[in-house]
Design a protein around this nucleic acid. Structure first.
Lengths: 408, 408
DNA sequence: CTACTTAGGGAAGGTACCTGCATAAGTGGG
DNA sequence: CCCACTTATGCAGGTACCTTCCCTAAGTAG
């Protein structure tokens, strides 16, 4: 949201202000009567009526049939937010997969799609595959492309302010790809690109373990371990999009977390050897790790010891984030977090003694949905910016063809 | 500023909005004519006239004599922000000193004061000394206490959300002191308490090396080294006020930075011994450090080597902050930054190779004024919140007795 | 069928904003 | 010294927006 309009305003800004407040109340509070809405927003009934007229004209609100038998007196007219007036698309791209999630303006899922990607595909082939997946996804869900109001994509690595992947170890050849520009060609709406751990943080605050928290760190434990931070409820990207890449300091124990877990679990290559194995073993490595985690979930002593060793190693990096930001909560997600969350229990034990504050350390329960959810949330936030902007004329909001026109 | 009024508003909020925009323009843009002001704020002249009438009534604006001979046509009426309508007080408290700075609403200094504190004084004696210093400071400056609209105090250590010092190694007995409550007794206005490194960050963005930057980390190198962060231009305190205390991780090299510098500089106790010496040697230690820094400024090889060794040791911690937050700029301040800034040069050399982003690392040029300046800035920000708040009736703004009443 | 309750519709009133025009108060040239 | 020109002011008229108030509409309960 724009912090504050530096310019003074004429009467129309007041209308936009009230319009935005009404729309927000209707969206967040659910279907409502005219009078009830007026009372909650703090406006008079005639004003609310006028505002609703505008919103209906913009296709964002619809009147619904009054509910008979719901009490005494004349039945009230009822209005609802037209969540179907637009859609948000979230895309997760990593070395092996592309995952898509489409929601309406309320964030309700209306479609999804998954496809495998060739790990060693060249960037343009990878992007083509993403485009094809998007097409298939929209077709399955029966959603017109023009109905999309914002798209967000998540990828491992550092994403610069312009949507270029400036650094990426996990996807071969991915560095330097102008992902935002490339994907932007496919859509008429804004396209955002963001680091995966950052999106995971957004997801945890939206639908995950960090719902009430304003300052959240999300540690995404995968091949390497990255972190994303929400500060004051807003994503902190940093000047070059590299915030949270604290794992670059080797002594903090966030590099090669997966190979450390496997190599610590039993017979196999030593840690040094596993590090040399590098990317080629990425897929199998994660599968091996999953086996170790499953064993730890069954309280297998060797596996538990391996997990604990990993947690001890990672604790420096996690504590560094906790000390640097003093968040209310740290959510640990990613492939290395099993269902029983043995890693998180160990981390808690190792990290808390290093911290000054009683930070809560919780396991993500979003599984591999986290990044897609976060991408959708980012897109929805972008849509909200347009929807609730006060300082200038609202962006074009012609109701898309795929949805029925506003009516009663 | 309040993010956004959740409630809708009547016409008076529009007036408040325009009032705030006008006041801001007048304060930041300096003295102005009526028509010029109207043009810049984006309002019509009659409206601006009305708004100015309100502001004059609140004592925040005054008309000044028109300037003859400044051009063709009828001379324009001129208005100015009445910076003298209130004052902000910044207090720095550390083990040895209390430093005070008073400014008007524009941030122009109108008074200051320094006094020594007994390092081993009990907290209540220390606070009494601060109170006495405040009294003396206000008397010297000729400022009525009721003219203060906000007070901010900086102290080493962790300051909880309620203004209590929850952790402090630098000042004996200081832990657990409810500094905000204690100081609050002396003033009728809001009193804020904040960690010193955080205030240094505010100061650097206001009047120091980081003026244009929104994401800034300020590393305050003293006895120990702490850090403060500005994110999106706002101070990030963290959930328990402990953000930036990354120095708690010993392997990051931010603990006991002063003793490391001295002990590395030549004959004297080894690092371990110096650490044991602890607090008692704090004052002398800083003086020794100053000698080493001065020698380094003269390019003394031994001293340069000692400084470089310190920088190498600190580089992990500084890089951790840089990687975690990806700030636009890191400002290094505190007693260990000499005039010639040999420490900063060394740090740059050691830290940049560890970073992903081309972060700028600069030396503070604010000297020992930094924390006082930051405290004043924090108080001024608090005042601005009241001054420009839109969502409710503006706080009481009776012109204080010490300043002449509004008039022409 | 009547009384009661709750919501809607519409008119009147007030406040804040804008535009436009006549007037005031300076400067500069003849 | 006077007049034309420039720039700002003061005031009136008009519009947009929000509020209050009263009456009517459309249900339910007895």
């Amino acid at each position: 949201m724009s912090e504050r309009s530096l310019h003074g305003g004429d009467l129309s800004v007041l209308r936009r202000l009230n319009s935005a407040a009404t729309l927000r109340e209707l969206r967040d509070g659910g279907e409502s009567t005219l009078s009830g809405l007026a009372r909650r927003v703090g406006l008079s009934r005639p004003t609310t009526e006028g505002v609703l007229g505008d919103l209906i004209g913009r296709g964002l609100v619809a009147e619904v049939a009054p509910r008979p038998g719901s009490g005494l007196g004349r039945p009230a007219r009822r209005y609802r937010f037209r969540a179907e007036a637009g859609h948000a698309l979230g895309v997760e791209i990593d070395a092996h997969h592309v995952r898509l999630l489409v929601t309406d303006l309320s964030g309700e899922a209306v479609g999804g799609h998954r496809a495998s990607l060739d790990t060693h595909a060249r960037p343009d082939a990878r992007i083509s595959a993403v485009r094809a997946a998007v097409k298939a996804c929209l077709a399955e869900a029966g959603i017109d492309r023009r109905s999309l109001r914002a798209v967000a994509a998540g990828t491992p690595g550092v994403v610069g302010p312009d949507g270029t992947v400036t650094r990426c170890a996990a996807v071969p050849g991915w560095e330097g790809v102008a992902l935002g520009r490339e994907l932007g060609r496919s859509f008429a709406c804004p396209v955002l690109v963001e680091n995966d751990a950052n999106l995971a943080a957004l997801a945890e605050r939206w639908r995950g373990a960090a719902r009430a928290a304003d300052d959240v760190v999300c540690v995404h434990a995968g091949l390497h371990t990255g972190a994303g931070a929400l500060i004051g409820g807003r994503l902190h990207r940093g000047r070059w999009g590299a915030a949270g890449e604290i794992g670059m300091l080797p002594e903090l124990g966030l590099r090669d977390t997966t190979v450390v877990l496997i190599s610590g679990a039993g017979p196999g290559p030593g840690a040094a050897g596993a590090e040399l194995a590098g990317l080629a073993s990425a897929g199998p490595a994660l599968e091996d790790a999953a086996r170790v985690l499953a064993a730890a979930g069954r309280r297998d002593p060797d596996a538990l010891r391996a997990v604990d060793r990993l947690a001890a190693r990672m604790s420096r990096g996690v504590a560094a984030m906790a000390l640097a930001l003093d968040p209310e909560m740290i959510v640990v997600g990613g492939p290395l977090v099993g269902a029983g969350a043995p890693l998180v229990e160990s981390l808690r034990r190792h990290v808390l003694p290093l911290c000054l504050s009683p930070v809560r350390i919780e396991a993500s329960r979003l599984g591999d949905e986290a990044i897609g959810l976060g991408a959708v949330r980012l897109a929805l936030d972008r849509i909200d910016e347009d929807l609730f902007r006060v300082d200038r004329a609202p962006a074009a909001t012609d109701p898309p063809a795929a949805t029925e026109p506003a009516g009663r």
